[in-house]
Design a binder for these strands. Structure first.
Lengths: 214, 214
DNA sequence: CTCACGTGTTACTTGCGGTAACAGTAGCCT
DNA sequence: AGGCTACTGTTACCGCAAGTAACACGTGAG
């Protein structure tokens, strides 16, 4: 049987794969999301066809690359989410974890969310919709699950929790994206503002009376 | 003076421009967001360089195309947002307006948000980050302004309102995107769920006691 | 020794965005 | 009238990136 040999070679292949991914990571961080397959292959010290043998096409490489970061981020979020603390505290910790991650590695973040906006002639890229969506979807689904597990929402809780999961993730993402671009306030303030929003402060606030021109 | 002639020709150019945009619209709706400049030119009955003379580059065409739809959507949202009604009603109307729009024209929506995911060899596209962001940004800014105008948030209201504007838009967008893909419930239910979230139901709900494995 | 197989290469095709360089046509000026 | 300008349109091309075919080297098994 060749099982032993096969596993041997598979290990070798896996190691190469990891090396290639790390090289791709370096290139993406340096050249921005518009990195070409040629550039990645060069960084890895090899040539294009090998990349294609390992990852099929550019989407495959991207997916593998995204999965690494996505998994790491999701794990951090899960930790914040599952901490034994008050709900508000957990929510703030989760928001802060996410925002800290995108603040610490904006290049990675931009790669995952908005590929192809780095280089001079820029685009020439692949697709984001096919990959960024999965990241947000996964986050939304996970959060939905956690909400359903830990919060008592009465009937239809499953549906409601999923809606909220995706909605909250989207809120976090959009606000984070905007914040990262404009930096209008500190991270802590942003976290607090968003938590306040989730805590119903919009409903609780009063109308402004002396509105303009009404 | 050649002002008359100039305006004359400008009008002609504007008409052509509109025709080209409509052709582009048709192609994008048919071929998905991966439509090539050649295809658009062919649909318009002309050839590529004319498109480039009118729009500069693909980004220009995309921006013009996006602006049409974006403006229309924003106007509808403004109407729902500025209606003379209770706040919760206005919020629900706005959410419903947005969701109805993306439900009615999912192709347009997918083009604006996730270009390049239609065709078989798909990508080969331009960038979305540079264009979808502006749409969400504009919506977030507008909503933030309205919130600041109409809701009494105490000190720091400007900042808070902007954060909330972007956050709520992101929530709406992510939930709508997910909903559009999976259709897990009716539009009305989704609107209600999201409004409930904004109304602080997350904070108000109790913990689930018999959690699994804790 | 040879044969299969995995790793690597060069050299190519295809298809895109984008750009010259050229051709026809309308109106204006003298 | 006849030429000048300005616009619209074309064909043919460049550059570049994704993806592929075909060939070359090394190595362990029979």
């Amino acid at each position: 049987m060749d099982t032993t040999q096969r596993t041997e070679q598979q290990r070798s292949a896996d190691r190469r794969r990891r090396e290639l991914l790390e090289a791709a990571d370096r290139v993406v961080l340096r050249d921005g999301p518009g990195a070409s397959m040629n550039a990645i292959a060069a960084e890895a010290g090899i040539t294009k066809p090998i990349l294609y043998r390992h990852f099929g096409d550019k989407g495959g490489l991207y997916a593998a690359l995204a999965k690494r970061h996505t998994d790491a981020l999701l794990e951090a979020l899960r930790a914040a989410l599952d901490a034994p603390a008050e709900r508000r505290e957990r929510v703030e910790a989760t928001l802060d974890t996410y925002l800290a991650a995108i603040e610490a590695r904006p290049q990675v973040y931009r790669f995952l969310m908005h590929p192809s906006e780095g280089g001079p002639q820029s685009d020439q890229g692949f697709d984001v919709g096919l990959h960024s969506a999965p990241l947000l979807r996964r986050m939304g689904e996970e959060l939905g699950k956690v909400i359903e597990e830990r919060v008592d929402l009465g009937p239809d809780s499953a549906q409601l929790a999923r809606v909220w999961g995706h909605g909250i993730v989207g809120m976090m993402h959009a606000a984070g994206d905007w914040w990262l671009g404009e930096r209008p306030c500190s991270r802590a303030e942003l976290v607090r503002s968003l938590a306040d929003l989730l805590w119903g402060r919009l409903a609780a606030a009063g109308d402004k009376v002396g509105g303009p021109s009404f």
